[in-house]
Design a protein around this nucleic acid. Structure first.
Lengths: 301, 301
DNA sequence: GTTCCGCATGAATCGATAG
DNA sequence: ACTATCGATTCATGCGGAA
C-alpha cells in the first residue's frame, strides 16, 4: 500500500482550484499572520486580512469532505495597543460562507517568547479554530486519550458506593454497562486546552508549531490513508507528520526555498505496511519527545 | 483609614446610573452567561445577549476612570453543535462604543465539568477580556509575579507551613526577610494564560470563580484604597477579595438571597492600617488555600 | 500531627422524547 | 419544523473522617 505526499509549489488559491471537491479529510494550517509592516514576507495588513482569506476558505470548503474538519491555527496581533479584531471578523464571515464554527481549542505555549512590556504580559496562547462542513464529522477521540490522574486509579481499584448507587438508581438493574466503562479506563479524554511547548524546531527553518500539534489533530480527525491538506505548508511540519502517521497529504507553498528544503525530507511515495485492524497505540509524552529528537538528528545529518 | 464595601440591591443598569463618572479603577465581573443560570437570573437568550449587554457596558464606560480597566469573564456556550458567536459580536460592538480591546486572557480551568460527547471534548477554559478606556491605564505587574524554577520551590518545601505563615503575618521580621528575598530572586512575570481550578465553593451559593481569580486582577490593576466594581456581584467573591486586599468596592446584585448572605460576611466599613510604603508581599498557593478554608469555616459557623 | 481514602459536586452537552 | 425537558456521560478538586 502506498502513502503519497504531494508537494505543490504555487499560489494557494490558484492551486486549490485544481483539487477535486470533497476529497480532503483534514485541513490543518497556520496561515501567515497579519502584519502591519509592509515588505515583510507575505505580510498581509490586518485591515485586509479577512478579504484576503475569504477566497481561500471558500476553496477549502469546496475540497473538504462533508465529514472532514478544518483546523485553523491563528492569533491576532497587537496593533496600536489593542488586539486586532480580524480573527473575530473572520469567524463571522466564514460562517456566512457556510462553515460551522464547531469549537475553539486553546494552544497553551508553555515556553512562550520572552519579553516585557509596560502594558501587557507575554502572549502565551494561540487559537485553534475548528470549522466543519456539517455536524456529522469524523472524530477519533480514543487516539488522543491521556493518562488519568492518580485519583481515578483509586476509583478503579474499588468503586465507591456512590457510583454503585448512582448507577442503580439510574439504570435500576444493578451493575449496568456503565460500570464496565469505568473498569476498563486508565485513560481520560483530553479537554479543549492543549499544553505544548514550542520546542522541536528545525534549526534551519524554525517551524511555526511543534510536530506534536498537527500530530494531535491528525490523530483526532483522521485515520490511516486519509487525506491531510496544508495550504500554507511553510517548512512542512504538517506534511511530515502526516507521512509518519501514514496519512496521504498535500502541501501548497509559494516560497521556493521551502519547496527545495522539503523535497529532501519527504518521499513523494512511501510504501507502508498497515495493520489489518486499526489498533490504537497511545503515544506518551515521553515517547513523543523521543520521536521528535530522533527526527532532528535525521534532518541535521 | 477606612475601606468601604458598598453592597447595592437592585437592577444593574439602573444602579450604575447613580454612580459618578470616572470614579472606578477596576471593573471585574462575570455576567450571567447566555441561557445559563436560569434559576437566578432568568437566562438571556444568545440571540438577545449583545443587545442586552450593550446598555450596561455603556454605563461601565462612563463610571470607569480613564486609567482604569474592565475585565469581563465570559464564555460562549454551544448551541446546535456550534460555539455561539455572541461574545465575538459583543467585542466588536463594545469597540464601537469606545472601548479598547486591550487583551484576552485565558483562564484554564483545571477541573472542568466532566462529560463525554461524540463530537467535542470538555470545555476547559474561559475568556477574560480586558477592555480599557485609554491606552494609558494603570498596571502593577510586580504584584502578580510568580515563582519560577525548582530552586525556590525546594527551599520553600523545606519550611514548615507555620514558618511561611509567620513570615507573611509579621511583616519585616528578620526571618521573613530572608524568605522573601529568595522568592523575589526567582520570580518572573506571568503570561496571559492563568491556571486555576474552580475551587473554594460555598455549599449554599457556589461561587462562579475562585477567590484567586479576582485577586490576581485586583492586584494587577489596582493599588490599596482604589475602587473595585462588580455589577453582577452574585455571591460576592470579588467584593470579599477586594476588602481583604484593602480596596474600596461596590457590588450590585438583583437577587435578594445573595444580598442577605453577603451582608453577614462583609463589613460596610472596615478600619485598616496601611503600610507607609506599598511593599508587595507574595501569597503562595499554599497560603491561599488556607485563607480559603478559614473563610469557609467563618461562613459556616 | 501527618497521610490516605471516600465522597459530593460542578457556567456542560448530546440525543431522545414530548408538546 | 421548532422548542422544552430529561437521562446519560464524565473527572479534578477540596473536605472531612480514618488509619
Amino acid at each position: 500500500m502506498e502513502i503519497k505526499a504531494n508537494i505543490i509549489h504555487g499560489d494557494c488559491t490558484e492551486e486549490l482550484r485544481k483539487i477535486e471537491e470533497n476529497t480532503v479529510d483534514l485541513i490543518f494550517t497556520s496561515p501567515p499572520y497579519a502584519d502591519a509592516r509592509k515588505n515583510t514576507y507575505g505580510g498581509i495588513h490586518p485591515n485586509k486580512y479577512v478579504e484576503w482569506f475569504l477566497p481561500i476558505s471558500e476553496e477549502l470548503l469546496r475540497v473538504l469532505k462533508p465529514t472532514g474538519t478544518f483546523v485553523l491555527n491563528i492569533k491576532e496581533r497587537v496593533l496600536n495597543g489593542e488586539r486586532n479584531t480580524y480573527v473575530l471578523e473572520l469567524i463571522l464571515e466564514m460562517r456566512k460562507q457556510g462553515w460551522l464554527w464547531t469549537e475553539e481549542f486553546v494552544w497553551h505555549k508553555k515556553n512562550s517568547y520572552p519579553g516585557k512590556w509596560p502594558n501587557r504580559f507575554r502572549d502565551s496562547w494561540e487559537r485553534l479554530l475548528q470549522f466543519n462542513k456539517s455536524k456529522k464529522f469524523k472524530m477519533y477521540q480514543e487516539s488522543v486519550m491521556v493518562t488519568m490522574g492518580d485519583w481515578a486509579k483509586t476509583r478503579l481499584r474499588n468503586l465507591s458506593d456512590t457510583d454503585k448507587l448512582r448507577d442503580e438508581s439510574k439504570v435500576g438493574s444493578g451493575f449496568g454497562k456503565n460500570i464496565s466503562n469505568w473498569l476498563k479506563r486508565d485513560k481520560a479524554y483530553p479537554t479543549n486546552v492543549i499544553h505544548m511547548a514550542t520546542e522541536c524546531n528545525n534549526k534551519n527553518h524554525s517551524a511555526v508549531f511543534p510536530d506534536a500539534l498537527p500530530e494531535w489533530f491528525i490523530k483526532l480527525f483522521t485515520k490511516e490513508r486519509d487525506m491531510v491538506l496544508d495550504p500554507f505548508m511553510g517548512s512542512g511540519t504538517t506534511i511530515k507528520v502526516a507521512q509518519r502517521l501514514k496519512r496521504n497529504s498535500t502541501g501548497i507553498e509559494i516560497h521556493p526555498s521551502y519547496i527545495e528544503m522539503i523535497s529532501n525530507e519527504i518521499n513523494p511515495v512511501e510504501h507502508c505496511l498497515f495493520e489489518k485492524e486499526e489498533t490504537y497505540e497511545p503515544i506518551e509524552h515521553q515517547r513523543r519527545k523521543k520521536i521528535c529528537r530522533k527526527q532532528h538528528r535525521h534532518v541535521s545529518l
